[in-house]
Each structure stands twice: as structure tokens, then as C-alpha cells.
Design a protein around this nucleic acid. Structure first.
Lengths: 255, 255
DNA sequence: CGTTCGATTGAGGAAGATCAATTAATGTGG
DNA sequence: CCACATTAATTGATCTTCCTCAATCGAACG
């Protein structure tokens, strides 16, 4: 696969030699460097996945961690009484499977929402490699740490932001994630239905739709000519401003 | 300090030799064993903290992890625009500080809500110890993994449960956490105000109060004769049943 | 013993859910 | 390729839950 153009959102599974040539995206540099280290040290098995593929399932015996080289994934939590909750979205450079370490079984589902490539890393061999290569351990811990910090941010968003702001913050974070990976953010493709977004943000699909309509009416986002899955974000800072505007009228909850 | 009675909720900082005598609480066994391993391997500096003490603050340079030997702690996330959100509650056996690994700075506040003892573990020396003692690494990863899994459960609760059920689930989880540590669960002391609980659960203090009143009216919980901070939980399963009742469609009377 | 803080409870209102109808995109078989 | 079926998205009208505001009460504390 040839890829000389600016990296697109679809995060092509580029060969290692191309990792250093991520165009003007110095933001994507760190991700690329880390992936390179992991690839060299672990020589992981590579696996191509497609939309809907289940990487692992809640209850399944834990054994592997997965590093995402490309594609887009969701983490779905399941409760005993049948509730389903999207609790995380994962991109290139993220890891999957940490939830399985403690209980020897995965505690949620990991599902591909797009074609992508994942690297399979048996946990035991990862530990062995970490002993030989301490920077690897640091990378692993950093990934887990980031996940913990981000999960907390998610909880804060759903607890403190009104619906409109939550949608704006969701788009802002998505764009930021893409930017960090050196991908385009002026036009992003939501690979989730309104229902999935609403589930993730703790609101109904109708509320998501209304929020997006308001964002479009305020010119904070735009819809591509065809299809409303493509969202244009001319200026990411406008999303942040919108969130603040939502918070401004009413002061913060709880002192 | 002598402690031959059944372990109370206050999780006394008992000497190592007493760890094996945790009464009938075989549930607290694993926590105790892990703490013993950590104590032996790391010989951490012990520090007594009191209500309101700040273990670390968002923005502070990361360096230490903290293992909780006793007491009760809250994790508070802060946003740039001044929102505050309680994103976690920590007990004996839990760790603090994982959020700081990735960015070299802590990303939230950790505050003691009770007198307690924490073990200070410099991250670098922990890594060194892990190389020499692989089980230690396993314990560390398990702690991080548990935190990730639990944060996801929190998000699911906030997103999918109505207010009353969220409060019931909160109490259930608290009781479960105490049980896992071999402490009493028939009468627990909430060390948070209604406002703090509400903040943690994404609702107002009035809603928390009303939910607790309803739980008491339904005899799912009871209030101690003195003070409404002590909650009696005669049967933890009644809390689970209450949650299910909240989720079930309108309970049709008769027929 | 008054002051303060936390908790409870009620009344009214607003954000968002639910229900419903319509339209737009996507997919399928002829 | 089109007609049709299916799924997703939008928008409006109502309804419910929970928030806001306010008053009262109890407990803790100097």
C-alpha cells in the first residue's frame, strides 16, 4: 500500500520504514515511535480485522493484550441484567485488554468499528520482554496510566456537562485524538450511529441528533454534502468555546 | 494498638503479624497477603494521614505511588474551567497515583477522608523491585487493571441507572468493598456528605437525600439512631434487588 | 447557647426522555 | 438500474425525572 499523501483518518497500516515519514504530523511522532519500539521488541503477530469483528469478549480467558496499529474500536461493558454501555473508544497506538489482567478474564467486549490492524501480544511474553527492555515496561505503564486518566475524564464529562456540551466535547476529543496521531481533523467520519454515540455519552439518540443540529446551526460544525456521518470541524477551538458557553449560564454543580 | 475484635470498617493499621488473624474474614485474606508481600519487598515509608490531608495534587510532579493500608480516600478530577468531580473512592489495599505515570504529573487530587496509613512507594524503586520480584509486577498490573475495570463500571452506572438505583448501587459497591477487605457491612459509616456522594454519582445532594429516604422507607437500608451518616444494611442483596426494581418496567399492581 | 453546617422535604420548573411521524441513506432482489 | 425494504437520522409534541429554590430541622461546635 502506497501512502505518500497526508495521513487520513483511516490510519493506514503503513510499513515500519514509513513510520518516520508521517508528513507534517509531528504530533503523530510519539505514537509512531512507540509503535516502532513495540514492533521491534515484541515482533507481534499482526492481525487484520474488519467492522464488527470481536477482538475479545467479556468472560473470555485473558491471555493477550492488543496494540492497535490502525482502525477504530469500541469497548463495551455488559451488566448481569443485560445493560450495555460503550465505555471507551480506541485508536491507533492504544492498547486493548488491560481489563483482563486482574481477573484472568476480560471484563468487557472489544469490537472493531472499521477495518484495521492489531498486534497480538501475549501478556506473558510481554512481561518477559519488559524485564529485558525496561523502556518497554515504561510504555506499558504509560498506556495503562493514560487509560485510567482518560476514563476519569469521561466520568467527569457525563457527570458535569449538559447534553449539548457532552456532544461537543465528544467531537473535540475525537478530533484531538486524531490530531495526536497526525491525522486530519477538519473533516472526520463518525463511525458510530447516533444511538452508539448516545449510549457512550449517556443520552438518547434523539438528544445527540438535536445537539449536532444545534452545533451545525451555530456553525461550530458542518455536515458534508452527502451523509451526516461526516462532520466538518473548521476550528476545533470553536467546540471548546461551545462547551464553555453551555456551562456559562448556570454555575458549576456542587461547591 | 491492640485489635482482637472483628475487623471494623475503620480498617485499623494492624501489625503484620496480625494480618493472618483477620477473624472470619477469609475475604480479606487476599488483600492482606498482597499488602504483606508489598511491605516485605518494598519496605515502604509509612505515613499517617488525617481527614482532609492531600496525598497529591493535580499538576504536582509524579514520583510516588501510594498503597493504602487503612483509611478512606477520594480522587477528585479538576477541569480547566473549574469543574470538580469525585471520580473514585479508595480503600485499604488500593493504590493511588497511577494517573501520574503517563504525563509525569498527577492529573487529579487524592484526599484522605479519614485517618489512615499510606505506604509511600517511589515509582522508580518499585520498578527496580519488580525486576527482582516478578510477582510484584503482577500485583502492580492487577491493581491498575482493577482500577480500569472499575472506572468502566462507574461510567456504566452513571449512564444507565436512574438516580435511586445509582445510590443503591453506590451503597452496594461500598458494602462489597468492605466485605472484600473483611470488614463489617451490616452498618457502614458514609464518610462523605450528601453533596460529595451526589457529585460522585452525577446528581444533586437533594436527589441523594431523597433516594436514601426512599431506600429507608422500603426497609432496604436503615438509619442508625443517631446521625444519618451511619447506614444499616441488613441484607446487601436487597440493594441489588432494589436496583433491578428501578430498572424493571412499571410494576403493575395485581394481575 | 447561639451559630453553622449538613440533611430533609416540598413546590415549581427545565433538561432531556419518550413517543410518534417524516425523511434520508443503505441495502436487496428482480 | 430500479422498486422496494430496511435501517438511520431528523424533528415535533408530550411527559418524566431530576434540578433548582426555599423553608425547616437536627447535629456538631466553639
Amino acid at each position: 500500500m502506497l501512502n505518500t499523501a497526508a495521513p487520513s483518518q483511516t490510519a493506514p497500516a503503513m510499513p515500519d520504514v514509513a513510520l518516520a515519514t508521517l508528513g507534517n504530523a509531528c504530533a503523530g511522532r510519539q505514537t509512531a515511535d512507540t509503535l516502532k519500539l513495540l514492533c521491534e521488541q515484541l515482533r507481534p503477530q499482526r492481525r487484520v480485522v474488519h467492522t464488527g469483528d470481536v477482538i475479545y469478549q467479556a468472560g473470555e480467558r485473558f491471555g493477550n493484550l492488543y496494540i492497535l496499529n490502525s482502525g477504530f474500536f469500541k469497548i463495551v461493558n455488559l451488566s448481569a441484567d443485560g445493560r450495555e454501555q460503550v465505555v471507551g473508544l480506541k485508536f491507533r497506538g492504544d492498547w486493548l485488554g488491560f481489563d483482563g489482567i486482574a481477573g484472568s478474564r476480560y471484563s468487557c467486549d472489544a469490537v472493531a468499528m472499521d477495518t484495521g490492524e492489531i498486534w497480538v501480544v501475549p501478556y506473558e511474553s510481554l512481561l518477559a520482554a519488559c524485564v529485558a527492555c525496561p523502556p518497554l515496561l515504561q510504555v506499558l505503564h504509560a498506556a495503562m496510566s493514560r487509560e485510567i486518566a482518560h476514563d476519569r475524564d469521561s466520568l467527569m464529562s457525563v457527570c458535569t456537562l449538559p447534553a449539548d456540551a457532552r456532544v461537543a466535547e465528544f467531537l473535540r476529543h475525537w478530533a484531538e485524538s486524531l490530531a495526536e496521531r497526525g491525522m486530519r481533523t477538519d473533516e472526520i467520519t463518525l463511525r458510530m450511529t447516533r444511538a452508539e454515540i448516545g449510549n457512550y455519552l449517556g443520552m438518547t439518540l434523539e438528544s445527540v441528533s438535536r445537539a449536532l443540529s444545534r452545533l451545525a446551526r451555530d456553525k461550530v460544525i458542518g455536515f458534508a454534502t452527502k451523509g451526516r456521518r461526516d462532520v466538518q470541524i473548521p476550528d476545533v477551538r470553536a467546540l471548546t468555546a461551545f462547551v464553555q458557553r453551555c456551562l456559562a449560564p448556570a454555575p458549576t454543580m456542587l461547591q
